[in-house]
Design a protein around this nucleic acid. Structure first.
Lengths: 155, 155
DNA sequence: TGTTTATAGTGCGATATCGTACTAAATGGA
DNA sequence: TCCATTTAGTACGATATCGCACTATAAACA
């Protein structure tokens, strides 16, 4: 009997998803409390993603990156546009599509938010140093990559 | 200069929260796709929590456990009650409060959902074995505990 | 004991997110 | 080239979540 037909103890997956759910809630609350009124984690997430080498991404690419419905991304981008943080221009490669570009104001919004978080992260660092996070981060990333792949396969 | 005044590289925290956000989205989608129509991750989360030794918790305790607003928990419990999955009874120890009790139907809903997830988790196990999750899970839990504590201290 | 303050739960309005359905453009095949 | 199918984005309605305000009860305390 080959290894991969052995039954596994699946409880670690349950525990992992539970922990992740709580960390996500806490992290979102931390961030949102430090954003200007009316701006949300989703807005920060998009500007941050664009600023990290994905400027000019399409709305659909952004929706996939964050694993949200494309209608949700339309809504989020609308908010960012209203604040002047992104510009949507036609996609020259595809008439159905658009490309999202970060404005200077958008970059500033993102950088400000990062700065606002730093004191909190310093506090975390006193109790849970960053290299301890670095120790398990590759594993967590790999896990994310695997389930990301599986999700795509589920169509 | 003592260690804890040294400046740290905080990027692992950012990366961690980003990964956690995506894992949470994917995990929620996985679960929700396997729940009966009209029932959500929040409903599963509460029944699962109750069944794991917290039966009789108060709504506020549940809101804190999941880090959601107490009005959100009121809403979630309303849905569970409508489906007959929980019962809310007065809290004999506190006239302002209630206690939430899982019904047999609620326990079955939870167990069914777990069963529906098993094939998927087996698939994950083929590509990312559970003991690899177990390897970093304690670190992740500890991280969660630390930020949980910090959140409480933020008032 | 009476009064002030804090806490548990809910009603309500605002909005973020999602699923469905639609339009327009691209793609693939006859 | 024409038509069927797929894909990108959006409009719309449903609902999950949140913040604020309110009521009832408990706790603190003069």
């Amino acid at each position: 009997m080959p290894d991969d037909t052995l039954s596994h103890d699946l409880t670690p997956y349950f525990s992992m998803f539970v922990e992740v759910g709580i960390i996500n809630q806490i992290g979102s609350a931390f961030l949102e409390a430090r954003l200007p009124k009316g701006l949300l984690v989703s807005h920060f997430g998009v500007t941050s993603h664009l600023s990290r080498g994905f400027d000019g991404a399409t709305p659909l690419e952004l929706a996939r990156a964050f694993q949200v419905a494309k209608t949700t991304m339309t809504h989020t981008l609308g908010g960012l546009e209203k604040h002047g943080f992104v510009e949507l221009r036609p996609n020259p490669d595809d008439g159905r599509s658009k490309r999202v570009w970060l404005t200077p104001a958008g970059r500033e919004f993102r950088d400000d938010a990062v700065r606002q978080l730093e004191p909190l992260f310093q506090k975390i660092a006193e109790r849970f140093p960053p290299d301890q996070v670095s120790a398990f981060l590759p594993g967590v990333s790999e896990f994310r990559a695997v389930i990301d792949q599986l999700r795509d396969e589920e169509k």
